[in-house]
Design a protein around this nucleic acid. Structure first.
Lengths: 208, 208
DNA sequence: CAGAAGATGATACTGAGTCTCACATTTCTG
DNA sequence: CAGAAATGTGAGACTCAGTATCATCTTCTG
């Protein structure tokens, strides 16, 4: 009850800022000099912290890089989903969010391509990228949950749809990168997302 | 054209055997003493090879452990899918394969639970487990591909369905582990797999 | 059987990740 | 507002993962 009034704790905010600074430095240095040539000491120095502090924020070098690479482009999806008209169903909301994110894709294209190539250049980094995807899955699931009208207790659908969304993004990105980064990535993601038809009518009754 | 006649190369077979021996030793030692307490030297010694040879077979300690953990239970899915009646559609084939694998699940339950807990006990190991899942995705996609009647060039459906299958397995396993490993894991996977209804009719026309 | 190609083990080296400790900063409490 | 408690920080030491090199041995090819 003295200096800080509105804030939700000064420590937490500083911590988040430091974390973002580390991730940004990690991704930038890895992009400039390559992953192998970027040491934790370099990243820590660039972020203005000590080496020990680095590991208090990230479990590994690769996780910091992966976080820095994707903070720019992906975790925002959950926020966009929340901002989309409330009368859209879960899947439609995701599609609308991707459409919204794709609007100024051309500006971001070079950055996206560089990040996609980098995260696929090392299997360690790719593994950590996949680990991050699980976090986003959870975030997406939480964001679309209110849009299910008939949600039972412990309903698997939000999580499954979150996983499906991230899978669509990842596989579409694979195709996009294989094509040299030309082509419309957001549209590719939408194509992937809506490619499979899992209507109950297609299930053969009696199979197990 | 002297001693080896039928074999597909002696080198390749030995290499596969060594790899399996390493993975088995890695998973066993990690299960007995924990991941942190298991060094690459230990694993190499237990597998009867030198330290340098270990890294010629696996990119990391965690990948070897993850491979050893899951070789027992999951990569076989693709083979089972191929063995299932040819007139079943892609999704039905996957469901039938899970049903088949679930038949003697009770015997394997303790092993599955131990492995699931272990792979979730360390975020590094979990990241590498996710990395393996991508390989399985690909294997599953290849196995169900012939079951799509109308497959276009570079059709995303097999890969998407592969990803969906692995997501269902992973998320169901999360729920299963959270419930203490009681409950019917194969049935949980099936529930997850068929939970989301992605019929085209549900897509609102005009949403971007 | 001889040479090519590849696998192996030993060794040395870099750097990731962990731990501990002294010190600084923030938050809590009276 | 002060002092206490809790938490964040950097520095240094240490273990071990992961890489590179080289001599030796095994497997394939003709």
């Amino acid at each position: 009850m003295s200096v800080q009034e509105i804030e939700p704790g000064r420590r937490e905010r500083k911590r988040a800022e430091t974390q973002a600074r580390i991730a940004e430095a990690a991704a930038r240095l890895a992009g400039e000099h390559g992953i192998a040539a970027t040491t934790v000491d370099d990243i820590a120095a660039a972020a203005g912290i000590g080496r020990a502090t680095f590991f208090r924020h990230f479990d590994s070098k690769e996780l910091a890089i992966a976080t820095g690479l994707s903070d720019v482009g992906a975790h925002v999806l959950a926020d966009v989903i929340r901002a989309v008209p409330a009368d859209l169903g879960p899947l439609d909301a995701i599609r609308a969010a991707y459409a919204h994110l794709g609007e100024n894709f051309d500006e971001l294209r070079p950055m996206f391509l560089e990040q996609a190539l980098l995260s696929r250049s090392s299997s360690v980094l790719f593994a950590w990228t996949l680990h991050l995807y699980v976090d986003w899955e959870t975030a997406i699931a939480a964001a679309i949950e209110p849009r299910f009208g008939d949600l039972a207790e412990a309903d698997p659908r939000p999580r499954m749809l979150g996983a499906l969304t991230m899978a669509a993004a990842r596989l579409a990105c694979d195709v996009w990168v294989a094509g040299g980064g030309h082509g419309d990535l957001p549209a590719l993601i939408q194509t992937h997302l809506t490619s499979i038809d899992l209507a109950p009518a297609h299930l053969t009754p009696g199979v197990s």
